[in-house]
Amino acid sequence: MKNKLEVKDLWHTYADGQREVEVLKGVTTTFEAGKTYAIVGESGSGKTTLISLIAALDSVQKGDITFNGKSIRKIGESEFRLRYVNIVFQAYNLIRYMTARENVEVALDFAKYVGDEHARAYELLERVGVKRTEADRLVNKLSGGQQQRVAIARATASEVPIVVADEPTGNLDEKTEVKVLEILKSLANEGKIVIVVTHSPKVASELAATTLRMESGKIISASAKRAA
């Protein structure tokens, strides 16, 4: 059976001071293993909110998210984050006092990687174009693009069925962008569910088999690319 991630009638509100802001208003969709998905839509339409819930960074309030029929609530948020999903976010999310390699090793540790962690970390970094000399520098001494690549390398450090990314190519030059998109596609080819939020139509069309368009908290259209 193929892995299946289902979002069922998902609602989400933020308490903004006194006001309640309704950000998701009944999102229902299904993600399947081995495919890449792009989520596009206007700023503020709720894209980050949706994938945060998928990544179990926030608790589901109303509706449900299930993996192979099992709810995140049942699995447990930290367990879900540990074994089901890896993320790449806009802000890189690296631990600043560690080197690039050590950041990747933290993820390897969490994944209980057996083998030579150093070698594996260098390898993963090299795949996204981070050279050894850069890998041994503290991440806060690296450029934005380099940091983004370290974050992607870290997201590939553990074997999880779902990878979500929020603007993963925002800070990358064209050459690296292509490389990153290839890595993401290869993850899907390995059988993972890959979900990417992007503002770039080019990224969406290049990467995704399915593009979901959001507007004020709802998915208004899903367009599937014909299999090439």
Binding site: L57, E79, R81, N93, I95, V106, F110, R154
Partner: peptide, 10 residues
């Protein structure tokens, strides 16, 4: 840093 670690499953 804690947010990062939590996102990694800590």
């Amino acid at each position: 840093e804690m947010g990062v670690l939590l996102s990694l499953g800590a």
